[in-house]
Protein backbone atom coordinates (compact mmCIF):
# COMPACT_ATOMS: atom_id res chain seq x y z
CA UNK A 1 0.00 0.00 0.00
CA UNK A 2 2.95 2.32 0.64
CA UNK A 3 3.88 2.37 -3.03
CA UNK A 4 0.38 3.50 -3.90
CA UNK A 5 0.46 6.24 -1.23
CA UNK A 6 3.80 7.43 -2.56
CA UNK A 7 2.44 7.60 -6.11
CA UNK A 8 -0.69 9.45 -4.97
CA UNK A 9 1.46 11.92 -3.06
CA UNK A 10 3.67 12.49 -6.10
CA UNK A 11 0.57 12.99 -8.20
CA UNK A 12 -0.70 15.61 -5.74
CA UNK A 13 2.63 17.42 -5.73
CA UNK A 14 2.74 17.39 -9.51
CA UNK A 15 -0.79 18.80 -9.78
CA UNK A 16 -0.04 21.52 -7.21
CA UNK A 17 3.12 22.59 -9.02
CA UNK A 18 1.31 22.59 -12.35
CA UNK A 19 -1.52 24.68 -10.88
CA UNK A 20 0.94 27.44 -10.06
CA UNK A 21 2.88 27.28 -13.35
CA UNK A 22 0.85 29.79 -15.46
CA UNK A 23 1.23 32.35 -12.68
CA UNK A 24 4.98 31.80 -12.47
CA UNK A 25 5.61 31.73 -16.17
CA UNK A 26 4.32 34.80 -17.90
CA UNK A 27 5.01 33.40 -21.36
CA UNK A 28 1.97 32.41 -23.33
CA UNK A 29 4.09 30.04 -25.41
CA UNK A 30 5.31 28.02 -22.44
CA UNK A 31 1.75 27.71 -21.11
CA UNK A 32 0.31 26.47 -24.42
CA UNK A 33 3.19 24.06 -24.89
CA UNK A 34 2.57 22.70 -21.39
CA UNK A 35 -1.07 22.20 -22.38
CA UNK A 36 0.13 20.05 -25.29
CA UNK A 37 2.34 18.20 -22.86
CA UNK A 38 -0.77 17.40 -20.77
CA UNK A 39 -2.45 15.94 -23.84
CA UNK A 40 0.47 13.79 -24.95
CA UNK A 41 1.25 12.68 -21.41
CA UNK A 42 -2.38 11.57 -21.01
CA UNK A 43 -2.10 9.45 -24.14
CA UNK A 44 1.18 7.81 -23.15
CA UNK A 45 0.12 7.23 -19.53
CA UNK A 46 -2.86 5.28 -20.86
CA UNK A 47 -0.78 3.60 -23.54
CA UNK A 48 1.55 2.45 -20.78
CA UNK A 49 -1.37 0.67 -19.11
CA UNK A 50 -2.08 -1.17 -22.34
CA UNK A 51 1.50 -1.87 -23.38
CA UNK A 52 3.56 -1.86 -20.18
CA UNK A 53 1.09 -3.27 -17.67
CA UNK A 54 -1.21 -5.60 -19.55
CA UNK A 55 1.35 -6.52 -22.20
CA UNK A 56 -0.73 -5.70 -25.29
CA UNK A 57 1.65 -4.50 -27.99
CA UNK A 58 -0.96 -2.19 -29.48
CA UNK A 59 -0.23 0.68 -31.83
CA UNK A 60 -3.90 1.64 -31.98
CA UNK A 61 -3.63 4.34 -29.33
CA UNK A 62 -3.03 7.02 -31.93
CA UNK A 63 -6.08 5.86 -33.88
CA UNK A 64 -8.21 5.93 -30.72
CA UNK A 65 -6.92 9.41 -29.99
CA UNK A 66 -7.84 10.47 -33.51
CA UNK A 67 -11.29 8.91 -33.23
CA UNK A 68 -11.93 10.97 -30.10
CA UNK A 69 -10.78 14.10 -31.91
CA UNK A 70 -12.77 13.43 -35.08
CA UNK A 71 -16.03 12.53 -33.35
CA UNK A 72 -15.83 15.69 -31.25
CA UNK A 73 -15.09 17.86 -34.26
CA UNK A 74 -17.77 16.25 -36.42
CA UNK A 75 -20.47 16.55 -33.75
CA UNK A 76 -19.63 20.21 -33.33
CA UNK A 77 -19.35 20.89 -37.05
CA UNK A 78 -22.42 19.08 -38.34
CA UNK A 79 -24.79 19.17 -35.37
CA UNK A 80 -23.54 22.19 -33.46
CA UNK A 81 -23.24 20.05 -30.34
CA UNK A 82 -21.77 21.78 -27.32
CA UNK A 83 -18.15 20.76 -26.79
CA UNK A 84 -18.95 19.82 -23.21
CA UNK A 85 -21.18 17.09 -24.63
CA UNK A 86 -19.17 16.30 -27.73
CA UNK A 87 -15.96 15.58 -25.84
CA UNK A 88 -17.30 12.73 -23.68
CA UNK A 89 -19.17 11.46 -26.72
CA UNK A 90 -15.85 11.25 -28.58
CA UNK A 91 -14.32 9.37 -25.67
CA UNK A 92 -17.21 6.89 -25.61
CA UNK A 93 -16.92 6.24 -29.33
CA UNK A 94 -13.19 5.60 -28.80
CA UNK A 95 -14.09 3.05 -26.12
CA UNK A 96 -16.53 1.30 -28.44
CA UNK A 97 -13.95 1.24 -31.23
CA UNK A 98 -11.29 -0.13 -28.90
CA UNK A 99 -13.54 -2.95 -27.69
CA UNK A 100 -14.38 -3.93 -31.25
CA UNK A 101 -10.68 -3.86 -32.08
CA UNK A 102 -9.82 -5.74 -28.92
CA UNK A 103 -12.29 -8.51 -29.67
CA UNK A 104 -10.76 -8.85 -33.13
CA UNK A 105 -7.11 -8.96 -32.22
CA UNK A 106 -6.34 -9.40 -28.52
CA UNK A 107 -6.28 -13.18 -28.73
CA UNK A 108 -3.48 -13.01 -31.28
CA UNK A 109 0.23 -13.32 -30.81
CA UNK A 110 2.16 -10.13 -29.86
CA UNK A 111 3.61 -8.86 -33.14
CA UNK A 112 0.36 -9.67 -34.98
CA UNK A 113 -1.43 -7.26 -32.64
CA UNK A 114 1.10 -4.52 -33.38
CA UNK A 115 0.80 -5.02 -37.13
CA UNK A 116 -2.99 -5.15 -37.19
CA UNK A 117 -3.47 -2.14 -34.96
CA UNK A 118 -0.95 -0.18 -37.04
CA UNK A 119 -2.88 -1.17 -40.16
CA UNK A 120 -6.12 0.06 -38.61
CA UNK A 121 -4.58 3.52 -38.15
CA UNK A 122 -3.27 3.48 -41.68
CA UNK A 123 -6.59 2.36 -43.16
CA UNK A 124 -8.47 5.14 -41.37
CA UNK A 125 -5.88 7.63 -42.63
CA UNK A 126 -6.19 6.40 -46.23
CA UNK A 127 -9.98 6.39 -46.07
CA UNK A 128 -10.10 9.97 -44.81
CA UNK A 129 -7.43 11.42 -47.10
CA UNK A 130 -8.75 9.81 -50.27
CA UNK A 131 -12.35 10.81 -49.63
CA UNK A 132 -13.28 13.43 -52.20
CA UNK A 133 -17.06 12.97 -52.35
CA UNK A 134 -18.77 16.09 -51.06
CA UNK A 135 -20.99 15.47 -48.06
CA UNK A 136 -22.01 19.09 -47.61
CA UNK A 137 -21.29 22.27 -49.54
CA UNK A 138 -20.11 24.99 -47.19
CA UNK A 139 -19.29 28.43 -48.65
CA UNK A 140 -15.66 27.37 -49.04
CA UNK A 141 -16.65 24.64 -51.48
CA UNK A 142 -16.80 20.96 -50.70
CA UNK A 143 -16.71 19.15 -47.38
CA UNK A 144 -16.32 15.36 -47.42
CA UNK A 145 -18.00 13.46 -44.59
CA UNK A 146 -14.74 12.94 -42.70
CA UNK A 147 -13.23 16.26 -43.69
CA UNK A 148 -10.87 14.92 -46.35
CA UNK A 149 -7.32 16.22 -46.50
CA UNK A 150 -8.12 19.55 -44.87
CA UNK A 151 -10.07 18.28 -41.90
CA UNK A 152 -12.36 20.32 -39.68
CA UNK A 153 -12.08 23.71 -38.11
CA UNK A 154 -14.46 26.12 -36.39
CA UNK A 155 -16.53 23.46 -34.67
CA UNK A 156 -16.71 25.19 -31.29
CA UNK A 157 -14.74 25.59 -28.08
CA UNK A 158 -15.20 25.39 -24.34
CA UNK A 159 -16.35 28.99 -24.04
CA UNK A 160 -13.14 30.32 -22.53
CA UNK A 161 -12.85 32.95 -25.25
CA UNK A 162 -16.07 34.65 -24.14
CA UNK A 163 -15.17 34.31 -20.52
CA UNK A 164 -11.43 35.01 -20.37
CA UNK A 165 -10.91 36.91 -23.61
CA UNK A 166 -7.35 36.69 -24.88
CA UNK A 167 -6.38 34.69 -21.80
CA UNK A 168 -8.55 31.78 -22.98
CA UNK A 169 -5.49 29.56 -23.30
CA UNK A 170 -5.18 29.55 -19.50
CA UNK A 171 -8.64 28.00 -19.28
CA UNK A 172 -7.55 25.28 -21.68
CA UNK A 173 -4.40 24.80 -19.64
CA UNK A 174 -6.39 23.94 -16.53
CA UNK A 175 -8.72 21.61 -18.41
CA UNK A 176 -5.62 19.82 -19.74
CA UNK A 177 -4.17 19.61 -16.26
CA UNK A 178 -7.41 18.13 -14.92
CA UNK A 179 -7.36 15.59 -17.76
CA UNK A 180 -3.80 14.48 -17.11
CA UNK A 181 -4.29 14.36 -13.34
CA UNK A 182 -7.34 12.14 -13.81
CA UNK A 183 -5.42 9.95 -16.25
CA UNK A 184 -2.51 9.54 -13.82
CA UNK A 185 -4.86 8.80 -10.92
CA UNK A 186 -6.58 6.15 -13.02
CA UNK A 187 -3.21 4.68 -13.93
CA UNK A 188 -2.11 4.57 -10.27
CA UNK A 189 -5.36 2.89 -9.28
CA UNK A 190 -5.05 0.27 -12.02
CA UNK A 191 -1.39 -0.48 -11.38
CA UNK A 192 -1.96 -1.00 -7.65
CA UNK A 193 -5.32 -2.72 -8.02
CA UNK A 194 -5.98 -6.47 -7.98
CA UNK A 195 -6.12 -6.23 -11.78
CA UNK A 196 -2.63 -4.76 -11.84
CA UNK A 197 -1.45 -7.53 -9.54
CA UNK A 198 -3.07 -10.12 -11.77
CA UNK A 199 -1.17 -8.73 -14.73
CA UNK A 200 2.10 -8.87 -12.82
CA UNK A 201 1.31 -12.49 -12.00
CA UNK A 202 0.58 -13.18 -15.67
CA UNK A 203 3.86 -11.60 -16.68
CA UNK A 204 5.95 -13.41 -14.08
CA UNK A 205 4.35 -16.81 -14.38
CA UNK A 206 1.65 -17.17 -17.02
CA UNK A 207 1.03 -20.86 -16.41
CA UNK A 208 0.52 -20.47 -12.67
CA UNK A 209 -1.67 -17.42 -13.11
CA UNK A 210 -3.80 -19.20 -15.69
CA UNK A 211 -4.12 -22.16 -13.36
CA UNK A 212 -5.35 -19.81 -10.63
CA UNK A 213 -8.11 -18.65 -12.92
CA UNK A 214 -6.64 -15.36 -14.14
CA UNK A 215 -8.37 -14.82 -17.47
CA UNK A 216 -5.84 -12.83 -19.43
CA UNK A 217 -8.12 -12.00 -22.32
CA UNK A 218 -10.87 -10.58 -20.14
CA UNK A 219 -8.47 -8.41 -18.15
CA UNK A 220 -6.79 -7.19 -21.31
CA UNK A 221 -10.09 -6.26 -22.87
CA UNK A 222 -11.04 -4.30 -19.75
CA UNK A 223 -7.80 -2.32 -19.74
CA UNK A 224 -7.93 -1.80 -23.48
CA UNK A 225 -11.46 -0.41 -23.22
CA UNK A 226 -10.97 1.70 -20.10
CA UNK A 227 -7.74 3.28 -21.25
CA UNK A 228 -9.40 4.13 -24.56
CA UNK A 229 -11.75 6.43 -22.64
CA UNK A 230 -8.94 8.73 -21.52
CA UNK A 231 -7.16 8.37 -24.85
CA UNK A 232 -10.31 9.39 -26.70
CA UNK A 233 -10.92 12.21 -24.24
CA UNK A 234 -7.38 13.46 -24.81
CA UNK A 235 -8.11 13.43 -28.53
CA UNK A 236 -11.34 15.32 -27.97
CA UNK A 237 -9.55 17.91 -25.88
CA UNK A 238 -6.83 18.17 -28.51
CA UNK A 239 -9.53 19.04 -31.05
CA UNK A 240 -11.00 21.73 -28.80
CA UNK A 241 -7.61 23.11 -27.79
CA UNK A 242 -6.16 23.45 -31.28
CA UNK A 243 -9.45 24.21 -33.01
CA UNK A 244 -8.38 22.12 -36.02
CA UNK A 245 -8.60 18.39 -36.64
CA UNK A 246 -7.03 16.90 -39.73
CA UNK A 247 -5.67 13.57 -40.87
CA UNK A 248 -2.27 14.55 -39.48
CA UNK A 249 -3.36 13.15 -36.10
CA UNK A 250 -3.30 9.67 -37.69
CA UNK A 251 0.04 10.16 -39.33
CA UNK A 252 3.11 8.09 -38.79
CA UNK A 253 5.43 10.83 -37.42
CA UNK A 254 2.78 11.49 -34.81
CA UNK A 255 2.81 7.83 -33.78
CA UNK A 256 6.59 7.91 -33.72
CA UNK A 257 6.62 10.91 -31.40
CA UNK A 258 4.28 9.26 -28.88
CA UNK A 259 5.98 5.88 -29.14
CA UNK A 260 9.31 7.56 -28.39
CA UNK A 261 7.88 9.09 -25.23
CA UNK A 262 6.83 5.75 -23.86
CA UNK A 263 10.11 4.06 -24.81
CA UNK A 264 12.36 6.84 -23.53
CA UNK A 265 10.47 7.06 -20.24
CA UNK A 266 10.22 3.33 -19.74
CA UNK A 267 7.12 1.15 -19.78
CA UNK A 268 5.46 -0.58 -16.89
CA UNK A 269 5.84 2.15 -14.26
CA UNK A 270 3.52 4.99 -13.23
CA UNK A 271 5.95 7.82 -13.87
CA UNK A 272 8.07 6.52 -16.75
CA UNK A 273 5.67 7.71 -19.48
CA UNK A 274 5.26 11.12 -17.84
CA UNK A 275 9.04 11.54 -17.72
CA UNK A 276 9.26 10.39 -21.32
CA UNK A 277 6.67 12.95 -22.39
CA UNK A 278 8.62 15.74 -20.66
CA UNK A 279 11.92 14.66 -22.23
CA UNK A 280 10.52 14.33 -25.74
CA UNK A 281 8.67 17.65 -25.56
CA UNK A 282 11.89 19.36 -24.47
CA UNK A 283 13.93 17.54 -27.11
CA UNK A 284 11.38 18.53 -29.75
CA UNK A 285 11.63 22.13 -28.57
CA UNK A 286 15.45 22.10 -28.69
CA UNK A 287 15.52 20.55 -32.17
CA UNK A 288 13.04 23.05 -33.59
CA UNK A 289 16.05 25.04 -34.78
CA UNK A 290 17.44 22.10 -36.68
CA UNK A 291 14.77 22.11 -39.35
CA UNK A 292 14.88 18.98 -41.43
CA UNK A 293 17.30 17.30 -39.06
CA UNK A 294 14.61 17.29 -36.40
CA UNK A 295 12.90 14.15 -37.71
CA UNK A 296 16.23 12.39 -37.98
CA UNK A 297 17.00 13.41 -34.41
CA UNK A 298 13.66 12.01 -33.20
CA UNK A 299 14.28 8.72 -34.94
CA UNK A 300 17.81 8.47 -33.55
CA UNK A 301 16.57 9.14 -30.02
CA UNK A 302 14.08 6.30 -30.41
CA UNK A 303 16.60 3.83 -31.84
CA UNK A 304 19.30 4.76 -29.35
CA UNK A 305 16.96 4.38 -26.42
CA UNK A 306 15.62 0.99 -27.48
CA UNK A 307 19.10 -0.37 -28.14
CA UNK A 308 21.00 1.12 -25.20
CA UNK A 309 18.38 1.69 -22.54
CA UNK A 310 15.68 -1.00 -22.83
CA UNK A 311 13.98 -0.08 -19.56
CA UNK A 312 13.98 3.63 -20.35
CA UNK A 313 14.86 6.47 -18.02
CA UNK A 314 12.72 5.11 -15.20
CA UNK A 315 14.59 1.80 -15.38
CA UNK A 316 17.86 3.73 -15.30
CA UNK A 317 16.76 5.63 -12.18
CA UNK A 318 15.71 2.42 -10.51
CA UNK A 319 19.01 0.64 -11.07
CA UNK A 320 20.91 3.78 -10.06
CA UNK A 321 18.99 4.18 -6.81
CA UNK A 322 19.38 0.46 -6.14
CA UNK A 323 23.14 0.88 -6.54
CA UNK A 324 23.18 3.93 -4.27
CA UNK A 325 21.14 2.13 -1.62
CA UNK A 326 24.05 -0.25 -1.18
CA UNK A 327 24.85 -3.80 -2.11
CA UNK A 328 22.26 -5.24 0.30
CA UNK A 329 19.41 -3.55 -1.52
CA UNK A 330 20.70 -4.53 -4.94
CA UNK A 331 21.04 -8.13 -3.78
CA UNK A 332 17.45 -8.04 -2.61
CA UNK A 333 16.46 -6.62 -5.99
CA UNK A 334 18.23 -9.48 -7.71
CA UNK A 335 16.62 -12.07 -5.48
CA UNK A 336 13.24 -10.74 -6.53
Amino acid sequence: MTAMRRDLLLCGLFAAAALAWPMVSGLRYSVTQTTFFFIWATVVVQWNLVFGISGIFSLAQVALFAIGAYVTAMLGYYLGTSMLLAMPAGAVVAVIASIALGLACLRLYGPYVALLTLCVSQVLYVLIVNDTDCFTHPPAGCMPLMGGVRGFSRFGDLGFRDWLGSGFYIGNYYVGLALLTAAILFSILIIHSPMGLAFRALRDNPVYAAARGVDRFRYQLWIFGLSAFFTGLAGAFYAVNTGVVGPVVFSFPHLLFLLSMIVVGGVGTVWGPVIGAVVLMVADELMRELGDFRDIGMGLILVGCVVLMPKGLSGLFQSLSARLAGPAASAAEKAK
Binding site: D292, D295, L302, P310
Partner: peptide, 29 residues
Protein backbone atom coordinates in the same frame (compact mmCIF):
# COMPACT_ATOMS: atom_id res chain seq x y z
CA UNK B 1 23.03 -5.67 -29.27
CA UNK B 2 19.57 -6.88 -28.21
CA UNK B 3 19.64 -10.46 -29.51
CA UNK B 4 18.48 -12.94 -26.91
CA UNK B 5 17.44 -10.16 -24.51
CA UNK B 6 14.02 -10.04 -22.95
CA UNK B 7 11.35 -8.56 -25.19
CA UNK B 8 13.47 -8.78 -28.34
CA UNK B 9 10.49 -8.95 -30.70
CA UNK B 10 8.91 -5.81 -29.28
CA UNK B 11 12.13 -3.87 -29.01
CA UNK B 12 13.34 -4.65 -32.51
CA UNK B 13 9.92 -3.69 -33.88
CA UNK B 14 10.13 -0.26 -32.23
CA UNK B 15 13.81 0.25 -33.03
CA UNK B 16 13.31 -0.47 -36.72
CA UNK B 17 10.34 1.93 -36.80
CA UNK B 18 12.78 4.57 -35.59
CA UNK B 19 15.49 3.57 -38.03
CA UNK B 20 13.00 3.62 -40.89
CA UNK B 21 11.96 7.13 -39.91
CA UNK B 22 15.60 8.24 -39.91
CA UNK B 23 16.16 6.78 -43.38
CA UNK B 24 12.97 8.30 -44.74
CA UNK B 25 13.88 11.74 -43.42
CA UNK B 26 17.36 11.41 -44.89
CA UNK B 27 15.88 10.52 -48.29
CA UNK B 28 13.51 13.46 -48.02
CA UNK B 29 16.42 15.79 -47.31
Amino acid sequence: PMLGAEGFETRIFIATIGFGAVMESAILM
